[in-house]
């Protein structure tokens, strides 16, 4: 499952490392956009296979931030 950015912003915090398990609803990444924090939660429980971004990166709406399997 791909974890996508819900809006343009920058990556404020990454709460999970590659290989970690994540639970459904857990905030994997927190974006910052227009002075607001936008949490990006996991849609289902799994393992974080791939992380495409680092803290401080700019992302556009729809960008794949991470892959959870």
């Amino acid at each position: 499952m791909e974890l996508k950015a819900s809006m343009a912003g920058s990556v404020w915090k990454i709460n999970v490392a590659q290989g970690d398990s994540v639970n459904e609803g857990e905030d994997v990444i927190i974006l910052e956009s227009m002075k607001m924090e936008i949490p990006i939660p996991a849609e289902k429980t799994g393992t974080l296979q791939k992380l495409n971004v680092a803290e401080g990166d700019f992302v556009n709406e729809g960008d794949v931030l991470a892959v959870i399997e």
Binding site: S6, M7, A8, G9, S33, M34, M36, I38
Partner: peptide
């Protein structure tokens, strides 16, 4: 206008 989520663009 409902969720108050930012809308850059």
């Amino acid at each position: 206008p409902v969720t108050f989520m930012p809308s850059p663009g």
